[in-house]
Design a protein around this nucleic acid. Structure first.
Lengths: 337, 337
DNA sequence: TTGTATGCGTTATCAC
DNA sequence: GTGATAACGCATACAA
């Protein structure tokens, strides 16, 4: 067994044709006669020839590779994003270089620099703590199309041109939650969030607005610095004192953690307090109590992001920004007062 | 703003030196005089030069890129693997091309072919449904080192040489569970699993062996085909009839789903039946009831995998296979009979 | 200390 | 139909 890579040239030599012919044959160029095409394919298979996409990318000036940065794949919601994005990309012939952003500016910069140095055709940022112009500067050299989700300034760029963007209708979701709670006879509501990402702010403000609109009064905001037990216990204790009718959480993970903390503090959900989440993670429907939450079309968003990104790379005009619909899932964690 | 990529040559022209000098300056070659080095760096920065790793890989014959395939990132346990693997890889200067295997042979083949065509320096397979020799054949052309986790034949290869491998001590975990249940006075135990992956088989058999050893009698095996509610309800009903003292599940996800199904069937955990999981997912400790499970050093495994892979790529001798210790976490879902 | 020439694996242009 | 040949962007052996 040879210890060197088998290249186009090797196939050419064995098949007794030129490298150009091999290249054409393998890519199904119609100008190649059937016999040679067959023979070349045969030889290529026998030799175990695998085209080197890097070399190809070099001449074609496109890598058929996408960069994907997510805050943290550990989170199921981001896992779904990565899964669907990758699936769609692969179906379209694109590989994806993945990296966690970790909501750390320096780390995110490193990631973007990596994407740039790979000269990926496009990059999708599902959340970033970087300022838009910095992202732009970091990615500009690679001429990559890119899309941003979650950021406050929701835009997509290609060679510095603003474009469309995909987002879930967080505001509508929070309004639905508020309406649901009012229908349940709730009078006071608290918001519990974790980190201070853009989505966090959007949801919190949307809830506050919706609450005000429906006469729920001010929304007490409780923040847990890191997603850890002690923090949630502290919040649970405060809720124990404040006794709001409901605690609306930034996401399901937060809600589930809070419910656990409430349990150790002796508050029962939904008996003593209603709790609502956001995202409709798989866990939401099998938690105890099953969680009332807002279903987000996560996979759909990831798919559309990849779709728009690839379309844009192909030079097609980018569709307008899209605000995908969400749906309130009423389950056991909220109950009438 | 120019519309072309800025290359080594561009920097060279502007800095009035040769491309070779630029190359050397940027990589800190000691043979370059300080003045030129500085000037070159300066120009490179001004021009926004970003080295093209693909081109570099072409000449260096190594891409500084790793391929990572996981069954499904959507699963938190795999999400942790991806996160830690990527983190470690990036810290070592490696990019990672990620793809889901989805436990689908055709899909996994496509993934491996993709890795091969990128001529990644190494690939890590955290679970695969492919036969070892097929993986080998698919990857051979790229000469990539690779490691497999989870498979029954647990080995790592480089140019067809068997090497070390990282795994958690699943058997020890199941033995600990069995012992715990016996200590609780349990007499009968069932196993609930989902798909038929290798780990599944390992854990099931280990439980059966441990049970036999400790006089727990035969282990009834219940299988849910897909991870969906109806399947779990069916299993829950059977458990309702069989009334085993405990149901030991393949993993936490399965355990949590089962507990939910048991609840709708009217069986209480741990009052009517004990339930144990495996993995110690974040959800395990905040579920209601909190789940007794086996903690696996997931991140540690991912890190070591990346570590060994990279070491092996660097030509270093590979460490022996490692069986990482697990730890039983006793919580609320198991109770004495 | 720096420049020149060559090659990495592939595709595209232009001959034949 | 097929074959040379010149890029693509970079790094190194060898000169200077």
């Amino acid at each position: 067994m040879s210890n060197r890579r088998v290249t186009l040239g090797d196939v050419a030599r064995v098949a007794a044709v030129s490298a150009a012919t091999v290249s054409r044959s393998l890519r199904g160029d119609p100008q190649i006669s059937e016999p040679t095409r067959l023979r070349v394919r045969q030889v290529a298979d026998e030799l175990g020839y695998v085209p080197n996409v890097a070399a190809r990318g070099l001449v074609l000036q496109q890598t058929q590779t996408l960069g994907l940065m997510t805050p943290d794949v550990t989170d199921p919601i981001h896992g779904q994003v990565v899964a669907e994005f990758q699936r769609y990309a692969m179906a379209r012939g694109f590989s994806v270089i993945f990296a966690n952003g970790l909501r750390d500016a320096d780390n995110e910069r490193r990631v973007l620099r990596t994407f740039a140095s790979h000269y990926v055709d496009g990059v999708a940022l599902m959340g970033s703590v970087l300022r838009q112009d910095e992202v732009l500067a970091l990615l500009a050299p690679s001429k990559a199309t890119f899309m941003v989700s979650e950021n406050l300034r929701l835009t997509s760029f290609r060679l510095e041109l603003p474009r469309g963007c995909i987002r879930a209708d967080d505001a509508a979701g929070m309004h639905a939650v508020a309406e649901h709670l009012v229908g349940l006879g709730h009078r006071s509501v608290a918001f519990v969030g974790t980190n201070a990402c853009a989505t966090q702010v959007i949801r919190r403000d949307a809830l506050a607005a919706a609450a005000a609109e429906r006469g729920l009064g001010d929304v007490a905001v409780h923040t847990v610095k890191v997603h850890e037990a002690p923090d949630f216990l502290a919040v649970a204790r405060r809720l124990h004192d404040d006794r709001p009718d409901a605690a609306v959480c930034y996401d399901d993970k937060t809600a589930l953690s809070l419910i656990d903390a409430l349990r150790t503090v002796g508050m029962r959900v939904p008996d003593d307090v209603s709790v609502a989440g956001f995202d409709d993670t798989p866990m939401a429907s099998i938690a105890n109590p099953r969680l009332t939450t807002v279903a987000q079309p996560t996979a759909e968003m990831a798919r559309r992001t990849a779709e728009m990104l690839i379309a844009s790379i192909s030079g097609q005009p980018l569709a307008d920004s899209q605000l995908l619909p969400v749906a309130l899932q009423v389950r056991e964690s909220t109950r009438a007062r």
